[in-house]
Simulated scan of single mutants.
Amino acid sequence: MTTRKNVLILGYSYAIQFIDVCNQYVKLFDQNHYKVTVAYLSGKPDENARSKTLAEEVIFLDFAKKDLRGIKISAIKKLLTLCQQEKFSMVICHRYKPIYIMLWVAQFCSIPALFFVMHAMKTFHHVSRKLLIALLARKNMYFVGVSNATRDDMRRDLWCISAERVITLYNCIDMELTESALLSREEARHTLGLPKDAFVFGTVGRLVPDKDQKTLIHAFAKIKSHCPKATLIIMGNGALEHDLKNLTHQLKLTHDVIFTGFVPEASCYFKAFDVFILPSIEEAFGRVLLEAMTAKIPVVGTRIDGIPEVIQDAGIIVEPQNPEALASVMMQMTHKSSLELTQWGEQIYEHVKKHFSLPTFNNIFWNIPINAL
Rank of each mutant, 00 (worst) to 15 (best):
A221F: 06
T37M: 08
I364G: 00
K196M: 11
L373A: 09
V208W: 12
F365T: 07
Q332M: 08
C109L: 10
D210C: 09
I233T: 04
S51D: 01
L169I: 15
S225W: 08
C160G: 08
L131E: 11
F143K: 08
L373M: 13
E241C: 04
Y349P: 02
E346W: 04
Q85G: 09
L278D: 07
H242Q: 07
K229W: 04
Q17Y: 15
Q24M: 08
V352G: 00
G306E: 06
D67W: 13
S13H: 08
F259N: 11
N171L: 11
D305F: 05
L41S: 01
P209M: 05
I9V: 13
F285G: 06
D30V: 06
H218K: 14
S13L: 13
M102T: 13
Y40K: 06
E56Y: 05
V105M: 01
K72W: 00
K35R: 13
L158V: 05
N32K: 15
E265A: 11
T53R: 01
E47K: 13
I234G: 00
P308H: 05
W104M: 13
Y269Q: 06
G261E: 05
V105N: 09
K44L: 10
S128K: 14
T37A: 07
V200S: 00
R287M: 15
R156P: 00
N322A: 05
